[in-house]
Amino acid sequence: MATETTAADAAHGAAEAGKAGMPQLDFSTFPNQIFWLVVSLVVIYFVLSRIALPRIGAVLAERQGTITNDLAAAEDLKQKAVAADKAYNDALVKARTDANKIVAEAKAEIQKELDAAIVQADAQIAAKAAESEGRIAEIRAGAMDAVSEVAKDTAKELVAALGGKADARSITAAVAARLKG
């Protein structure tokens, strides 16, 4: 590109003389550059302000909205999870209390039954003991009778063997006196 320009110098002739210095200072090209610059800027400005920027702005806003919504939903779900956790824990605590209550009730019931059984058993034991005592007393009484009978008989026989004659009443009285003594 550069060498071609040098070669074309002759052809350009007078026009090239003005370009000896910096092309930036070649004022003959200024209107052209400024015109096309303004055209480009106007085109870019309208493309951006009419189409691109509103679109991107809308997309960004929509994304922001989506993110906000999602965060809110996440927060919501988190609250629900916390609530569910709490409910679970509450249920657990309640179940534990219920279990304790049931255990206590069962224990109390068993205790009551046990108490009743003990009372009954005690009563039975007492009745048995009373009965036994009655029997023992009976037996004792029976034994006493038998002893006094035997003593009377023995006394009568003894009296008869000794050649005496003893009437039944005096023997009974004597035996009774002896038994008491």
Partner: peptide, 19 residues
């Protein structure tokens, strides 16, 4: 020719550069 790259040239043909 470090400055030749800055020369403004017509795209088509030669001639003076109008606005």
């Amino acid at each position: 020719h470090p400055l030749d790259q800055f020369i403004v040239k017509p795209l088509f043909g030669e001639g003076p550069i109008q606005w």
